[in-house]
Amino acid sequence: MSAVFEKPSLRQRLLPLFQGFDGPLAFAVFMLVCAGLLTMYSSGFDHGTRFVDHGRNMVIAGGILFVVAQIPPQRLMSFAVPLYLTGVALLVAVALFGLTKKGARRWLNLGVVIQPSEILKIAMPLMLAWWFQRREGQLRPLDFLVAGGLLLVPVGLIMKQPDLGTSLLVLASGLSVIFFAGLSWRLILPPVLLGVIGISLLVWYEPQLCADGVRWPVLHDYQQQRICTLLDPSRDPLGKGFHIIQGMIAIGSGGVFGKGFMAGTQTHLEFIPERTTDFIFAAFSEEFGLIGNLLLIVSFLFLIVRGLMIALDAPTLFARLLAGAMSCIFFTYAFVNMGMVSGILPVVGVPLPFISYGGTAMVTLGMGLGILMSVARSKRLVPT
C-alpha cells in the first residue's frame, strides 16, 4: 500500500505569505502610489530617468514591505536595542569623520556612502516601544525621563550635522511613542503652551528679530534665514524666498480643478525648484487643483487612521506603540512637506510620501508599512 502525496501548487505555497495582510491599508497605499507615479511622470518625464527610477524605488519599497511583514512583532522587538545602538554609534562616527557636502556633515563612507540618520527613523520608535514594553505595569515618571534621554541623544546628534528635517521626523516618531505610552497631559500642555507663545512673539517681533546683523542662539544661520523667509518671503524674492513664493503661486494657479495632467506652466517652465523632490506637492496642486489636493489629503488621512486602528487592535503593548509611531511618522512626513510648500512651515528637507523622488525615504516608508502589516497580521493570525 503506497501513499500518494500531492505536491502543493505555487499558489498554495505563496498564499500563506499574504494571509493576514490588511486590505484597507494596502488600498490606501495603492491610491498614493498611483498619485505618485502620475505626478512623477508629469514633473519628471524630461528630468533624466527620474520617472523610471521612482518606479524602481517603489518596487524595492514593496519588496521590503513584503519581507518585513513576514516578521512577527515579537521578533522585531529583538532588533530594537542592536539597531538603536548601531544607529547612535554611526551618528557619532559621522560627527567625528563624516563626509561634508554643501556645508552639512551627514554621510559616512563605509565602502558605500550611507546616511546613518535614516536608520533612526525606524530604530527610535523600535527602541522606545521596547523600553515601555519592558516597563509595562510598573511605569514611573523616571521611565519617561529615561525615554526622553534615549530620544534626545540621536536627535541632538542629527541636529548638529545639521539636518533639521530628519531630526524633526526622528523627534516626532519618538514623542509619539512616549505619548501613546501614557504621558500625562499635565506634562504635555505646558511645552505646547510655551510653543504657541513663542511663535506668537516671533511673528509679532519679526521685523526686529530678522533685521540684518541679528543672530539667534542655538540655530544655525541657514535655519534662522529659513524661519525669517517663512515669515516674510518678500524679503528676498529672488533668493531665499524664491522657493516659497513659487510654490504658493503654483498652488494658487491650480484653482479648483487644476490645469490638467502635464499642463502645469509653473512646473514645466521650471519656475518650481526641486519639482520632483521636496516641492512636488506644488506641481501636483497646479495640475490637479483643490479637488486633487483634497483627494490626496483624504488618502493620507485614510492611511494614517487605518494605521492607528491597527495599533488599537494590536495584541501587545510593544506592537501597539510601534504601530502608532509608524502612523505618526506618515502624518509628520505629509504635514511638514505640504506645510512648507504652502508657506506655513519653514523649508526643510522632508519628502512627500510616495509622491516625492528619493530612494532612501522610499526604503524607510516601505519598512514602516511592513511594520504596520506585521502588526496587523499578528492579530489576524493569532489562533482563536
Rank of each mutant, 00 (worst) to 15 (best):
F5Q: 08
E6V: 14
L10I: 08
R13A: 01
P16Y: 07
P16Q: 07
V29F: 10
L37I: 15
T39A: 14
M40V: 13
M40D: 05
Y41K: 01
G44L: 15
D46P: 00
H47Y: 15
G48P: 02
H54A: 05
I60R: 07
I71P: 01
P73R: 08
R75A: 13
R75E: 12
S78E: 11
F79M: 15
P82W: 12
L85F: 14
L85Q: 08
T86S: 13
V88N: 06
A89C: 12
L96K: 11
T100G: 02
K101T: 13
K102L: 12
A104Q: 12
L108K: 10
V112C: 00
V112D: 02
V113H: 05
S117T: 05
M127C: 13
L128S: 13
A129H: 10
A129K: 09
W131C: 04
Q133V: 00
R135T: 06
E136I: 00
E136P: 00
Q138A: 15
Q138W: 06
G148V: 01
G148L: 14
G148H: 09
G149K: 07
L152P: 01
V155E: 08
G156N: 05
I158P: 03
P162R: 01
L164W: 07
T166F: 03
S167C: 02
F179P: 02
S184L: 10
L187A: 14
P191H: 06
L193Y: 04
L194T: 13
G195P: 02
L202Q: 07
V203N: 01
Q208N: 08
Q208K: 11
L209K: 07
G213N: 08
P217T: 03
L219H: 02
H220G: 09
D221M: 06
Q223K: 06
Q225Y: 01
C228E: 13
L230K: 01
L231Y: 05
D232T: 02
D232S: 14
P233A: 09
H243M: 04
I249G: 05
A250T: 04
S253N: 07
G254P: 07
T267W: 06
R275T: 04
A283H: 04
F284I: 03
S285Y: 07
N293P: 00
L294A: 14
I297R: 02
L301K: 07
F302N: 13
L303D: 11
M309Q: 15
I310M: 11
A311Y: 14
F318Q: 13
M326K: 03
S327N: 09
C328D: 02
I329K: 02
T332E: 08
G339C: 09
V363S: 05
G366M: 10
G370A: 05
I371Q: 07
V382F: 14
